[in-house]
């Protein structure tokens, strides 16, 4: 019995971070209808920024987040303005090329700037843990989980109860009507993209002390996020969160009971099985697209 609880905790903790990465991706898709293939590189960038702030300036990752997340937000605004906006009316294949090219560009830029070495934030508390009865709980993973969930909930509340949030949801559901109720839709696109980047930036800050970073770390992790986004219903924040947590738990149990090399296999099997019965994902509505981002 103890082992089940311990595995569920480990899985949920990792799943929380998956959820936070996925939420930004699904939000951007839901509102802009653009799949941002460079999402993972923003994660990498946030991890590198956290690393350098820690090692060069001595900033604790949690303090660094106050700088890193705004930087990512601004980068999101810039990216939307310079690249993504120009593709919004273009065919999907153009959007794929543009964001994919951005992903490769950033990977290689990181390579030139930072080399391919793995860099780890070695904070004192990185491996601190406490025991509750028979369970070992890593402080950092627990905090990362709590922060991920808190950010996701905060996003949902913002979308549900603020004018700006309502405008974002309205834009997701009907661009034309959104314009006609006076919403500056271009601004909403920029803001949404920036929020997506800021969220993945937060995920990067939380991951940096847990996991070494090199220019390909984001690309490796983003696969899980894509699975979570599709599984949750593309564009659904609740769906992506649920799917992220579920994948974390599935990975944890399957690697204990079936072996570590089986865990991707198992969650893909679950992925295919769920999509076979529910092709639109957990909260999907029309085709593969949800129109309400919450």
């Amino acid at each position: 019995m103890e082992i089940y609880v311990q595995l569920a905790l480990s899985g949920l903790f990792v799943g929380g971070i998956y959820a936070l990465i996925s939420v930004g991706l699904t939000l951007v898709f839901g509102v802009l209808r653009v799949v941002n293939f460079a999402h993972g590189e923003y994660l990498t960038l946030a991890m590198f920024l956290t690393f350098f702030m820690y090692h060069l300036l001595g900033l604790d990752p949690f303090v660094a987040s106050l700088v890193v997340v705004p930087i990512l937000f601004v980068l999101g605004l810039v990216t939307e303005r310079l690249l993504v906006r120009r593709t919004l009316e273009a065919p999907h294949v153009v959007q794929v090329f543009v964001t994919f090219a951005l992903s490769l560009f950033l990977q290689n830029l990181f390579l030139v700037l930072f080399t391919s070495d793995f860099r780890a934030v070695r904070a004192e508390y990185a491996t601190a843990a406490f025991e509750i009865g028979p369970f070992y709980i890593s402080w950092l993973r627990m905090v990362a989980f709590a922060a991920s969930i808190a950010l996701t909930v905060a996003l949902a509340v913002f979308l549900k109860y603020s004018y700006m949030g309502a405008a974002i949801r309205a834009t997701a559901q009907d661009r034309r009507s959104a314009r006609l109720v006076g919403i500056n839709v271009d601004r909403i696109y920029a803001l949404t993209f920036a929020i997506g980047c800021a969220l993945v930036g937060a995920a990067g800050v939380l991951l940096a002390p847990l996991y070494p970073v090199n220019p390909y770390t984001g690309a490796d992790l983003i696969l899980v996020a894509f699975v979570a986004v599709v599984l949750g219903g593309m564009g659904s924040i609740a769906g992506a969160t649920l799917a992220g947590l579920l994948i974390g738990v599935i990975e944890s149990f399957s690697s204990y009971f079936l072996g570590g090399e089986m865990k991707q296999f198992v969650y893909f099997i679950v992925f295919i099985a769920i999509l076979a019965f529910r092709p639109v994902g957990f909260f999907g509505r029309k085709g593969a697209e949800v129109m309400d981002v919450t």
């Binding site: 595995l7 990792v14 990975e251 690697s255 570590g260």
Partner: peptide, 17 residues
């Protein structure tokens, strides 16, 4: 004899084992 993917973010199940 346990194998796992090098891209994993969580090895705690292995540690438990």
């Amino acid at each position: 004899h346990e194998l796992y993917s090098a891209k994993t973010t969580d090895l705690s199940p292995l540690v438990l084992k």
